[in-house]
């Protein structure tokens, strides 16, 4: 049974690199305003049209179970977010959120069909972290800056690198928010394992310790130079998301460091 985390704020569990980026943007007020404007622009002139046009809006009447879990997630994270929630047909296990004034959450139907309440809480914890952690404007800045920088080869890539780095680290913050909401370490690690490719129906049979050992061995294995360069290049310049395995290790490390337990104790 999850405990309510009274007074918790996302700044307490943000990844270091994420904190630095957030502080930079919030101090540079025009940049923060640009980020908000970009996010609202994309939300209003694209997402809202698509969601209202084709997705199914969920409410307490047609999706009472989903809405009850959302209400529970807000209660656990001691927060409130005025959102609209939509479902759409997609074979993905990732939720998405957009918009600042009135965020929309989009849920693939495959999550509704396959996920347990605890897995839902993990995902909703991620969404609440993005909304209340004021992360969406940073994502908007990063996304649009990357598009702009793509016009300038080489130097554009060099400038995109720190943004890509931040985007990957911000996902680690979001994962921490997910864990704090579901308060089930096993569930969180198994969700990250689903992202690596195994189906929800089979993930319970995965030996997480063996998986962890596999990842540690892979990391410590010496790579051929070409492979190492390729991996570095992919990570820094091409990958917008943290590797699923990287997220698995990072959440493990954060949990093992005692930070997770410390936050739970502090707020309960």
């Amino acid at each position: 049974m999850q405990k309510i985390l009274y007074g918790i704020d996302s700044s307490e569990y943000r990844h270091q690199a994420d904190i630095a980026a957030q502080n930079l943007v919030e101090k540079a007020v025009p940049l923060a305003k640009i980020g908000e404007a970009l996010e609202e622009f994309e939300h209003k002139y694209q997402d809202e049209i698509i969601f209202r046009g084709s997705h199914v809006k969920l409410n307490h009447h047609n999706a009472p179970e989903v809405m009850a879990i959302w209400d529970k997630a807000m209660e656990i994270m001691d927060t409130y977010a005025d959102v609209e929630i939509f479902s759409h047909r997609n074979y993905s296990y990732r939720m998405s959120v957009g918009g600042i004034k009135k965020p929309f959450i989009s849920i693939p139907d495959t999550i509704i069909r396959n996920f347990s309440e605890t897995q839902w809480l993990f995902l909703f914890g991620q969404m609440l972290t993005m909304i209340n952690g004021r992360m969406l404007k940073l994502f908007a800045i990063a996304r649009n800056f990357e598009k702009f920088m793509s016009l300038f080869p080489v130097i554009g890539d060099a400038l995109k690198a720190p943004l890509g780095q931040w985007r990957r680290k911000s996902q680690l913050t979001i994962d921490r928010g997910g864990l704090l909401c579901c308060q089930d370490y096993d569930c969180a690690m198994r969700y990250l394992t689903i992202l690596s490719g195994i189906s929800p129906s089979s993930v319970s049979s995965v030996d997480l310790s063996a998986r962890m050992q596999q990842l540690v061995d892979a990391q410590s294995e010496s790579k051929e130079t070409a492979v190492a360069i390729g991996h570095f290049n992919q990570t820094l310049f091409s990958s917008r998301s943290a590797w699923s395995n990287e997220r698995f290790i990072e959440l493990y490390n954060w949990h093992e460091s005692g930070e997770y337990a410390k936050i739970i104790r502090k707020h309960t």
Partner: peptide, 15 residues
């Protein structure tokens, strides 16, 4: 299919 069948059953025509 935009939402699972049990939700689509509960979405009323008015909604």
């Amino acid at each position: 299919g935009e939402a699972p069948p049990d939700i689509m059953e509960r979405v009323t025509p008015d909604e």
